[in-house]
């Protein structure tokens, strides 16, 4: 474990806490893409299939459980909780996210570290996470003004994988045989997808103005 990865995991956890705060405090999921939340639930379920078979550390197991439980809780809130469900705007959240699931799984069948059930689902979760934010970014562009908590949620979610890139550089430089091409390349693509969001987020922070993504 290095400082970049710990900072990355904490930033990821923070993004989830900010989203939970937004939904709990405002009893609304306006501006939040249910589809992105569903994709993240699939990402965690597919990636942590080894939750009960491979014990790496208490921290690792604890965080896996937190990520799985929180992502399922958020999807449950948006789908079932009467107050929150009413605020979900399905006419804005129209990205065909099942195409992302299909494409990621197909890619995992061809590009993986080992042709085993666990490794194919692990690669699938890595590819899917790289594109999971797309429905959310499309929704933000459509919904015009973005409330602060939703903007912060997306910012921290994008920043966490950026910190992981620093972690991979650090591990590459310090560990003799460290190579994680699937995670690295996918992580760079994932972070790059946030580039324009980061730009507009920085502008809104600099001008102390409302975050607005151009349509």
């Amino acid at each position: 474990m290095n400082i970049f990865r710990l900072a990355g995991d904490m930033t990821h956890l923070l993004s989830i806490l900010v989203l939970l705060l937004k939904i709990y405090a405002t009893k609304s999921c306006s501006g939040v893409s249910r589809k992105t939340q569903e994709l993240y639930a699939i990402v965690f379920l597919a990636r942590y299939l080894d939750l009960f078979t491979d014990f790496i550390s208490v921290y690792n197991t604890f965080m896996k459980i937190v990520f799985i439980a929180s992502s399922l809780a958020i999807v449950w809130c948006i789908r079932v909780h009467p107050m929150v469900k009413r605020s979900y705007d399905k006419d804005l959240d129209t990205f065909r996210h099942y195409l992302l699931v299909a494409a990621s799984f197909l890619l995992a069948l061809f590009l993986h570290e080992k042709f085993t059930f666990l490794e194919i689902f692990w690669a699938f979760s890595i590819y899917l996470e790289a594109v999971a934010i797309l429905p959310q970014l499309v929704l933000l562009q459509r919904s015009g003004n973005v409330d602060n908590l939703t903007g912060q949620y997306v910012f921290f979610l994008g920043a966490y994988r950026g910190l992981y890139i620093l972690n991979w550089i650090y591990r590459y430089l310090t560990e003799p045989r460290f190579t994680r091409w699937i995670a690295c390349v996918s992580g760079v693509v994932q972070t790059a997808l946030y580039a324009d969001f980061f730009y507009y987020y920085f502008i809104s922070w600099k001008n102390n103005s409302k975050l607005k993504l151009p349509a």
């Binding site: 080894d50 896996k64 692990w122 994680r180």
Partner: peptide
């Protein structure tokens, strides 16, 4: 796990 190496990252 790949050649004995766990996916030790989240």
């Amino acid at each position: 796990t790949v050649d004995g190496k766990y996916h030790d990252e989240l």
